[in-house]
Computed example of a mutant assay.
Amino acid sequence: MNVLGQLGVAVAGLVLAGVLLFLNFWRALLYLFPHTVRVEPEAPADQMDLPDGLGPLAGQLQALGFTPLGSHEEKPLLQKATRSYDWAHAGERVFATLYEGADLFPRLYLLTPLASGGFVVTASYRRPALDVPGYRSGSLEDAAPERLLRAHVRRLEGLEPAGPEGFTWEGRVQTARAWYAGLGRKEIRRQNLQGLLWTAIALAIVASAFLGRRAG
């Protein structure tokens, strides 16, 4: 292969590596350092700026006895913050959180912190299924809030939820922080393993291009 051909291959490889890094480097960071996700309160219940697309689900939650708490933001490294809108059912000891996915499709998940420090999570969208000591996570895709709540309560059987006094806006923010710093790391790493692998491939392409250039 002549010099121009070699240069073209090297440039194409670097462009591919750049695209892979742009799409996946933040996921690799999230895999390696899940505790770095910043969780901050955003607005109390009476000031929540709920998107129109989440309104129907919010109404169904309130009909089930959930009380609005407020909103919070979760910001991974190198990414924009995701705003989440929170409710709580102190009687069932369940948090409900609504947010819009990257496709602006409504997302709902239920979360219960356990007295032991663990968590139970049930989502209405695809989510990794995990069942390890102190942590249960799963999903019922496209389930209505009522059905999701029934399933979540069943999954709490045999476990001791945290006390009802913790189901406040401040308690929800602290729960999110504890999730990222603790048992939630296993789920985060499962979700972002592919991003780590693609990042490693991209870095290998860059290294190969420079080493090949030096050898030439």
Rank of each mutant, 00 (worst) to 15 (best):
T97G: 03
P145L: 04
W198E: 03
T168I: 08
V39W: 08
A96D: 03
R214N: 06
G70T: 09
A143I: 14
G91V: 11
A81N: 04
F22A: 10
A144T: 13
R107L: 07
E73G: 14
F33D: 00
P56C: 09
A151D: 10
F105S: 13
G184D: 05
L183Q: 14
R126P: 03
P128H: 01
Q6C: 08
E73K: 15
A123L: 06
R214P: 07
G171D: 01
Q191N: 10
E92L: 12
P41H: 12
F22D: 01
V19E: 00
Y180E: 01
T122Q: 03
G216K: 05
R154Q: 14
G182A: 09
P76N: 01
Y109M: 10
T82Q: 09
R177Q: 13
P145Y: 02
Q6L: 13
F25D: 02
A102S: 13
L211F: 15
A96E: 03
L196P: 11
L159A: 02
S139C: 13
G65W: 07
F95L: 11
R83V: 14
N2S: 14
M48N: 02
V9W: 12
A88Q: 06
D46Q: 10
W87Q: 04
S84I: 12
T168N: 06
A115F: 05
V173D: 07
A90H: 03
S116V: 08
G166E: 00
P106K: 09
R107G: 04
L148V: 10
Y99T: 09
P164V: 11
G13W: 04
D52L: 12
Y109A: 07
P164I: 11
G91P: 03
D52V: 09
A96R: 02
G91I: 03
G59Q: 14
D46A: 10
A10S: 11
P145F: 04
G70W: 05
G18D: 00
L149G: 05
V132M: 10
R38A: 13
Y125L: 02
F105D: 09
W179K: 02
G216V: 09
G18C: 00
L14P: 00
L193T: 04
G70Q: 04
N192M: 04
V132W: 08
V3E: 13
M48C: 07
L183A: 09
T199L: 04
F25N: 02
E73A: 15
